[in-house]
Computed example of a mutant assay.
Amino acid sequence: MTSTDTSKIAKSHVLKDFLIENLPLMSYDSSFGSSPSFPRFDLFARDYLQFAEHELLQLKNDSSKIEHIHLINCVSHLKRAIDCQLDVCLHVLNIKVFKEKNLGFNAKLNFFKAAGLFNSFSLNRFNTIRNKMEHHYQIPKIEDIESYFDFVSAFVSVLESMINMLCNYSEIFLTNDDHANRKTRDTFAIQYSFDDIPQITYSITKKSLKEYVSNPPSFEFAKYPEEREEVEVTVTSEERDEFPYFLKVLLLLARKDTFASDKYILSQLENLK
């Protein structure tokens, strides 16, 4: 087994270059899931969304003469929904650095942005509404609250989908068969490990197929394959400049041939600082 020298080149750039060159030649092989640990909260983001919706309904039903109470309560519940969902996701990923270093909301949000969960346009719009609601001591307008509610609901759903993907695709295998001469079968694998210090590892394995039998003659398969692993690269959650991109790659490949085309995946892989 040999490993790639990434001391001078960022691991993310090596991974990006490999996938851009090889992804169009590779096909989905298999995947495995995990059962990550969830926090034992009394309330979760969906509960706070329900509370916020209740306040909106109270407002529309005109059940109180002090309407701004419902508006302000709604903002508070939506803020708790966001904070709760971020903390749930970080707990599931087993990433403790944000709590250990007392990193706040923006640091958490930027992590998930770097992992490809949100784009700059949606986050700018989201933060504009959030700042208007939370930091100017103004009574919000009902139309602003409804927009904010929609954004937070989408925010919660996006992070839920990430957790669901990791539950089903924490390890992914792609293969590249040399159909021209049937002498090689290369495998690319990427895996999320929910260790005390989480890590993501990708490996490239080359198999030389030396002997074949036909049974029946129309189906040819390898006998006694010789396997040699060429590359294995790991990043941990403590590598804050590298880890989000590896997570982004894993989540993109989990969508291959189902929710995303290779063209889309390649375009997203290019987005690396």
Results as ranks from 00 to 15, higher is better:
197 I>P: 01
69 I>S: 15
42 D>H: 11
156 V>M: 06
222 A>L: 01
169 Y>C: 00
93 L>H: 02
221 F>W: 03
126 F>V: 14
148 Y>T: 08
69 I>C: 13
88 V>T: 15
30 S>E: 12
208 S>L: 08
106 N>Y: 11
31 S>Q: 06
66 I>W: 12
89 C>P: 00
56 L>G: 07
184 T>N: 13
268 Q>Y: 03
54 H>I: 00
150 D>C: 10
137 Y>A: 10
256 K>S: 06
15 L>D: 10
131 N>C: 06
35 S>T: 12
219 F>R: 07
73 N>F: 15
172 I>M: 02
225 P>C: 04
65 K>H: 13
237 S>Y: 09
77 H>A: 09
57 L>W: 03
1 M>A: 13
267 S>L: 03
142 I>G: 00
138 Q>H: 11
255 R>C: 14
154 A>K: 10
172 I>F: 08
34 S>N: 04
114 A>I: 02
175 T>F: 09
197 I>V: 15
267 S>Y: 04
201 T>H: 04
42 D>P: 14
145 I>C: 12
36 P>A: 12
44 F>N: 14
210 K>H: 08
55 E>S: 13
45 A>G: 05
166 L>A: 01
65 K>T: 15
18 F>N: 01
71 L>T: 13
14 V>F: 13
64 S>V: 12
68 H>R: 15
227 E>S: 09
217 P>Y: 10
118 F>Y: 10
165 M>N: 02
107 A>Y: 10
231 V>W: 08
10 A>M: 11
252 L>F: 03
130 R>W: 14
44 F>H: 09
137 Y>I: 04
89 C>M: 13
95 I>Q: 04
118 F>H: 06
15 L>C: 09
260 A>Q: 10
76 S>M: 10
112 F>V: 04
45 A>H: 06
